[in-house]
Simulated assay, not measured.
Amino acid sequence: MANKNKYADLSREQLEDKLERLERVRYGLVWKDKPEDVADQCTQELPVLVEDKTKEIRSADDPPTHFIIEGDNYHALYTLNFTHQKKIDVIYIDPPYNTGNKSWKYNNNYVDKEDTYRHSKWLSFMNKRLRLCKTLLKNTGIIICAIDDYEFAGLKLLFDQIFGEQNRLGTLTVVHNPGGRQDEKFFPTAHEYMLVYAKNNTKAEIGTLNLSKDKISQYKDADIYGRYKLRGYRRSGANSRKEDRPNLFYPIYISKNYGVLTAQYKEGYITLLPIDDKGIERCWRWNAETFEEEKEKYIEIKNINGEINLYVKERENENTGEKTKLFGINLNMRLLAVPQN
């Protein structure tokens, strides 16, 4: 039976402190923060960058446009915040994976699998550096972090906490060993991950790939506006029912010779509603106003075996490129933060 009087001996201040802590409890990541010497040092001393001209790389005509900082990563990030705060476009980090094989030091001591605070030390290490990275990024900036299974779950929650879950752009699966690690007992690991976050997802942009030959070959039809492929004008899949988007459920009126179609009522015209072959009330892709504005250039009518269907023309010359998939990436790369010009 629980002890109902376990708080009886606490002072008012202690009870208020306990209540305040309970109010702060929320879904997320909690760990024992471990002090770090290098971070504490920066509160007393300022790290300074010293140029090493013996390692300078430049051509005879052009000045150097890039630089490499060699030293402790916390010192580097801390110093860059004096010179490049809110000026960085992209940050790629490849932190220690904390596998316990004594490849990573915390406070100058290797952290192995037997260390009780192994995960807490690693999260403390990452927390300090990610917060420095965030202040370096522009509002349009993006950060990419490589990681494997050892700390993936904790790191994802830490990123959500610092950058905001809404700013998670995706988790990429990176295939770096297609054959897998055959010495593993169960599933041979063939991949790692890249977590991709924006500082502000409403301002960030991701580039696209050039269309493949296979994609280009899909634009088989053409009209006065150029080549196109067809896509059903009636929506399907998630959020496609009438109750999901009631403003996208409306009748379209088609003349008997199919020469005229409109969202405005026409007596004697064929009435078409977005109802699928199972009788489910769906919705159209556009609202009625957009339909009227775009129908001439983008809508096509087909009568197949007596069934009338509408299609949207997706035009080749309006395709800005192919989005990168969140799986199947096979690469070996190391990127540096890229400052603005």
Rank of each mutant, 00 (worst) to 15 (best):
N332I: 06
N107E: 02
E16C: 04
I147G: 01
R234I: 14
E151A: 00
K53R: 09
I143F: 04
I224M: 06
N127K: 15
H66M: 04
A238S: 09
V111P: 06
A190R: 15
P47A: 10
N305K: 15
M333I: 13
A337G: 12
Y197G: 00
L80I: 05
E307P: 00
E281F: 01
R234G: 05
N201E: 10
I329R: 11
Q182Y: 01
C283D: 14
P274A: 07
M333W: 14
R234W: 01
V312Y: 01
C133F: 01
R168M: 11
I270W: 06
D40E: 14
G207S: 10
E289K: 15
R58E: 04
V260I: 11
V338M: 07
T43P: 00
F327D: 11
D277H: 11
H119G: 00
A204T: 15
Y197T: 08
D277K: 15
N109R: 12
Y106L: 05
Y117H: 09
R315P: 09
L172V: 11
I69P: 00
E267H: 07
D37P: 00
V338Q: 01
Y253A: 03
N127W: 02
N309S: 15
N177V: 00
L19I: 06
K87F: 05
T262S: 15
R129Y: 11
H75D: 13
H75P: 01
Y311I: 05
C42I: 09
Y110W: 03
T324F: 10
E294H: 14
K295S: 05
V90R: 11
S11V: 07
E56P: 00
L310M: 12
C283W: 02
K199H: 14
I252K: 08
D52W: 08
V174T: 01
E20L: 11
Q182N: 10
K295R: 15
F249L: 05
L261T: 02
K34V: 15
S255Y: 02
I143P: 06
E70G: 05
D148C: 09
